[in-house]
Design a binder for these strands. Structure first.
Length: 1076
RNA sequence: GGACGCUUAGCUCAGUUGGUUAGAGCGCAUCGUUGACGUCGAUGAGGUCAGUGGUUCGACUCCACUAGCGUCCACCA
């Protein structure tokens, strides 16, 4: 039979993978046994897979294949992650590099999404190809994607559930804002960087008693309080007071508050509180609010990263850096500046966009981790902790185990620091927040522009006097108001029956393209009775302070408060009912406007007058009816519904992975069968992002754990210990490596030398070594297969004069046979134990040591001497291939198929689903192993002597042995040590170099070659080390405490070692004596 | 500032509950056309297990401290 001398992966890999797939071996439905599931951590579609993914794939595939061979119905479910922000950031970056400076603005939502979709689909295709190339045995029929329809259903469902349980809320809070990405980031997505900063010490104003320090003086424009430690003697007297100060031209109302968090030692011991631009200060703001001692919140930095109007006219529109300079400059000028010092400061940067995030108050969606879940008595935080600590619902069988265990501690620490999770993002790529709003009835009420009677300062409430239209100035005023409203949508305009309002309405209608215009008399000007045509102000002067009297007697025929308020209220009540969810533009007069400001508030006449009288063409928004919110698309009926613009944090959907992949919220068979999953593995860098969220979502929604065991692998670094990254230029495509050395070699090199939770290094040399190993395995098999075939042919041909190299032996087991069986049984036992404990590297090393170091180097060589071991060799090979299969699936399957071919069997039997070898304890025999060790030592010692004395390796020599005879093992010794004859002697021969093995003294006759000095030196050296060994043992055994306290067994072993050592020493001494 | 790791042969790393004359791979040195494999074989050199102290009959292994390196978390304005 023809088997190539070296294993060429390319001839087998793709073909074998396709065959496995075609035969449905990846699909658990076609397997029998207990379900066992592993969900693949879905790679981001931000690009292609790197070696770290290859490591991950290898680890989980070893586990999947091992479990499958143990006879389980294994599901390894593949998938990919849309990676929301990461993918959008990536595609935008590419577009920017191509010259599209602002992709969002240029392309708009739909077009940009289309581009990202295209990119992600390409990535996905490559990723899938790569996973296949790695030999990963996953079920492609269940391929999932976090952003496909089924996963979307799961996302919406869980969002709805959490919203209804009050665990998801929308709130106005300080969040992390990436100006560059124009989106929020959650706390965990921040990358903290140490960077030099400057701490400035200064006073807000000369008349303010407290000095403060800040690295961000420009934010101080938004300060509303100063916090001090409650026990700080310096400031105690001020606590509770409010100071109005002029800070860089801005009026600040600073309340002195106390907070135990303030460190009196740092800076000046007083902290300027900026609730809008610092999470801690925001907490103080909330604390104060809760204590009914509220302080204000003023946002001086906008979402564009520039100073807002609130920062004052001088600063508005400046970048924060410019504003900072300006503040410092001003403080210096005003002699308020005290000092500046250099410090290092840790700043949070967006991990995807890279810019320093700004703390900005905004309305966003959050997951409340501290609220008790209805009907559960626990918060999400507590659920997350419980699952890892004592087990979900406190049951030990529901405990999630993390390997290595120390990560459990890190996890708890993280949970303890966990704050509400901001889940809304302003990027477009991702699950749109499943919330629909229907805008309530909104009214923009606008006063008419300047009219002729305004200009002439004449009062007019007589609708028939049509000469009082708009002046030119009035028309301009209206047009400029229209310009401000140009982005708003209105359903209709309603105006009063006066000429000035009619004209205003028509300008607005034209400018804002509102076609529907109605007139309503209830919006008319205040009835002024006898004051009609009188100078402006005559009425109001008189009216001042006379409300009550007018209401009673109304001497001038002026409309009463009740009358005006009554008709306006009636009008507003009516349109609220008549135009739900519409936006109306209402053109009216000053008085009606004023009354609208008090609408629904039950104000008195007097109160109403404090609401302010609007200028010409001034407008205001009024909400007559609140917005409506629905969290289910099914409930959204009729028109006017708008979905929330924001998208969800990618980890929101990733958190559902273990069950969304199985069809949840449908009660599928898969869900019942494969959930909770058995095993999960991931890198420690996503422990919090992902594992924590999966635990959160699963314990909450499914009332169970997502997985039983989590295996944490370390990060893969390059040969210099650097992280693999594109920017460092050391990124490697796993496919390239696999092409060069074979997938099996790549897998092996990634799996060996790793330990859970620890980083490992990758180098070409490692893969090269692995390639050699794979080839060794190939050749071991090749030898066994071809020699068996030859032997078979030989025996068929009989002894027709053909040179038969080996004589046939009786089929009884030799010591070597028993030895290899004992060793092999032990290997199976140990491998099972190690694999069950996720010690993939250790199990692999044992396997290599046995295969190469024991089976190939010793047993195979002996088999050549002892002959006729085809059956045993074949049976060991078959089991050996199985043990190797999880690590190197391709070469083992390839050999297995060669075996099938050689036996002319059909290819319907696959190593991949063969049964994992059972441990045969009956073969384990310590005595045999010990005996064989002796034989092995005899061979080694002879080789050693030959090497020392430079005996030609090819030359066959004879040796003399004093002591025990080798018996049946002679053949092995003679072949492996290149001996032609063994003489058993009673005394040491002349001119011979000697060695001691157990009860045997071995002599290599050297005649004139023997160098007495060298021999003496050699023996002396051995003697010395032996003496040291013996004295150590004697000391140990001479210690009564040891003999008394150590286990009997241990003492017995030490005693035996001592007596054997002494015996050996005697013999060496004798040999030394003979030398002289 | 807090927490967690790591430090074992020239390099990369194993070492499970404390009992080994401390291991592997690569590299190095010497040698080698042996019924598969030079992607091989034989032999060998190479380590006071970071340091100090402790617990113990016994410590690479457990504890404490120190030093160096690394990682994660964090609201020192």
């Amino acid at each position: 039979m023809e088997i190539p001398k070296t294993y060429n992966p390319k001839d087998y890999e793709d073909k074998i993978y396709q065959n496995w797939d075609k035969k449905g071996l990846f699909n658990p439905d076609k397997l029998k046994g207990k379900p066992y599931s592993i969900m693949m951590p879905p790679p981001n579609v931000t690009g292609v897979l790197h070696l770290g993914h290859a490591l991950e794939n290898s680890v989980m595939d070893v586990m999947a294949r091992y479990q499958r061979m143990l006879g389980k119905k294994v599901l390894l479910l593949p998938g990919t992650d849309h990676a929301a922000v990461a993918t959008q950031a990536k595609v935008e970056k590419i577009l920017i590099e191509k010259g599209h400076a602002n992709p969002r603005e240029e392309f708009g939502r739909e077009k940009l999404l289309e581009k990202i979709r295209k990119y992600s689909e390409e990535s996905k295709a490559t990723i899938i190809k790569q996973i296949k190339k790695m030999g990963t045995s996953c079920d492609w029929s269940r391929l999932a994607y976090t952003f496909d329809e089924k996963r979307g259903t799961a996302v919406n469902e869980i969002f709805k559930k959490m919203y209804k349980d009050g665990l998801i809320y929308r709130g106005y809070r300080v969040i992390n804002w990436s100006v560059k990405g124009q989106s929020t980031c959650s706390d965990d997505e921040l990358v903290h960087l140490e960077r030099p900063a400057r701490l400035y010490t200064f006073k807000y104003a000369a008349d303010f008693p407290i000095t403060i320090a800040s690295t961000r003086p420009e934010t101080k424009l938004g300060d509303t309080a100063v916090a001090v430690h409650p026990d700080d003697a310096r400031y105690k007297k001020y606590i509770g007071q409010t100071f109005e100060v002029d800070f860089c031209g801005n009026k600040l109302n600073l309340k002195i508050i106390s907070d135990p968090e303030v460190d009196p030692e740092f800076g000046t011991g007083a902290l300027g509180v900026t609730p809008a631009h610092s999470p801690i200060d925001f907490e103080m703001y909330q604390k104060q609010k809760a204590a009914s001692q509220p302080i204000n919140l003023i946002a001086v930095i906008g979402s564009d990263g520039k100073m807002t109007n609130e920062a004052g006219a001088e600063f508005s529109g400046l970048s924060v850096e410019k504003a900072r300079e300006k503040v410092i400059e001003k403080l210096k000028k005003q002699k308020l500046f005290i000092k500046e010092e250099d410090i290092t400061q840790s700043v949070g940067t967006s991990d995807r966009f890279g810019d320093v995030v700004e703390a900005v108050p905004m309305t966003q969606w959050f997951v409340d981790v501290n609220k008790k879940i209805p009907g559960k008595k626990l918060s999400l935080k507590q659920l997350m902790k419980q699952a890892v600590k004592s087990g979900h619902k406190g049951k030990a069988k529901n405990k999630i185990n993390i390997t290595p265990k120390n990560f459990e501690k890190i996890y708890f620490q993280w949970i303890d620091n966990l704050r509400d999770w901001c889940i809304s993002r302003q990027v477009w790529w991702g699950h749109r927040i499943p919330v629909w709003y229907k805008k309530g009835t909104e009214v923009v009420m606008i006063r008419h522009g300047q009219s002729v009677n305004n200009e002439k300062k004449v009062l007019n409430s007589d609708v028939t006097r049509t000469e009082f239209g708009l002046t030119e100035k009035g028309k301009k005023q209206v047009k400029s108001a229209a310009a401000e409203l140009k982005n708003e949508q209105f359903d209709l305009i309603i105006h009063s029956p006066f000429t000035r309002t009619k004209e205003t309405a028509h300008i607005l209608s034209k400018e804002l393209k509102i076609s529907k215009i109605l007139e309503d008399d209830r919006l008319r000007e205040y009835g002024m009775g006898e004051f009609e045509g009188k100078p402006d102000g005559s009425l109001s002067k008189l009216r001042k302070g006379n409300f009550n009297e007018w209401q009673k007697s109304n001497p001038f025929g002026v409309e009463s408060f009740e009358q005006v308020n009554g008709r306006i209220t009636e009008f507003l009540d009516e349109i609220k009912k008549k135009y739900p969810y519409k936006r109306l533009l209402i053109v009216t007069h000053g008085e009606s406007f004023r009354y609208t400001r008090g609408y629904g508030k039950g104000l008195s006449n007097k109160d109403t007058f404090t609401l302010g009288y609007p200028n010409n063409a001034e407008y205001n928004w009024f909400k007559l009816k609140e917005d409506e919110i629905k969290v289910s698309e099914k409930e959204v009926k009729g028109s006017g519904w708008i979905q929330d613009e924001d998208t969800l944090d990618t980890w929101f959907s990733a958190g559902l992975w273990t069950f969304s992949t199985l069809g949840w919220p449908k009660k599928t068979k898969d869900l019942k069968k494969f959930h909770p999953t058995n095993w999960m593995q991931m890198g420690y860098e996503i422990l919090f992002f992902w594992m924590a969220r999966m635990i959160l979502m699963t314990t909450y929604a499914l009332d169970t754990i997502p997985f039983k065991d989590v295996y944490i692998h370390g990060m893969l670094r390059d040969d210099k210990g650097q992280k693999f990254s594109k920017s460092a230029g050391n990124g490697v495509d796993p496919i390239e490596i696999a092409d060069k050395f074979g997938t099996d070699a790549l897998r092996w090199s990634l799996l060996i030398g790793i330990s859970p939770g620890n980083d490992s290094r990758f180098s070409d040399e490692k893969v090269e070594g692995a390639r050699n190993l794979v080839n060794k395995l190939w050749n071991i098999s090749r030898y066994i297969l071809t020699s068996a075939e030859e032997n078979k042919r030989d025996s068929e041909e009989g002894s027709r004069g053909e040179k038969k190299r080996k004589t046939k032996r009786a089929n009884t087991a030799t010591l070597a046979d028993k030895w290899i069986l004992s060793r092999f049984s032990k290997l199976k036992q140990e491998m099972g134990r190690l694999l069950d404990g996720y010690s993939f590297s250790q199990a692999g090393e044992l396997l290599r040591e046995f295969t190469w170091g024991e089976f190939a180097d010793w047993y195979l060589e002996i088999s050549k001497a002892e002959g006729n071991k085809d059956q045993l060799l074949n049976s060991i090979l078959k089991d050996l291939l199985k043990l190797w299969h999880p690590y190197v699936p391709f070469v083992t399957e390839a050999i297995y198929q060669e075996i099938k071919k050689s036996k002319k069997q059909e290819n319907n039997d696959w190593l991949m689903i063969s049964e994992w070898p059972k441990v045969e304890k009956k073969y384990i025999d310590e005595k045999v192993e010990k005996e064989f060790e002796n034989v092995r030592e005899v061979i080694t010692k002879i080789r050693n002597l030959r090497s020392e004395y430079k005996v030609d390796p090819g030359k066959k020599i004879s040796v003399s042995i004093k002591g025990d005879a080798l018996g049946d093992n002679e053949k092995a010794v003679m072949a492996l040590a290149r001996i032609e004859k063994i003489n058993y002697v009673k005394s040491k021969p002349d001119k011979a170099a000697g060695a001691v093995v157990g009860n045997m003294e071995i002599y290599l006759p050297l005649a004139d070659l023997l160098d007495f000095d060298k021999e003496k030196e050699r023996l002396e050296k051995e003697k010395q080390s032996l003496e040291k060994y013996i004295s150590g043992l004697e000391k140990k055994l001479g210690n009564q405490e040891f003999v008394k306290n150590a286990p009997e067994q241990v003492v017995a072993v030490e005693k035996k070692k001592l007596s054997e050592g002494k015996e050996k020493l005697n013999k060496i001494n004798a040999q030394l004596g003979d030398l002289v």
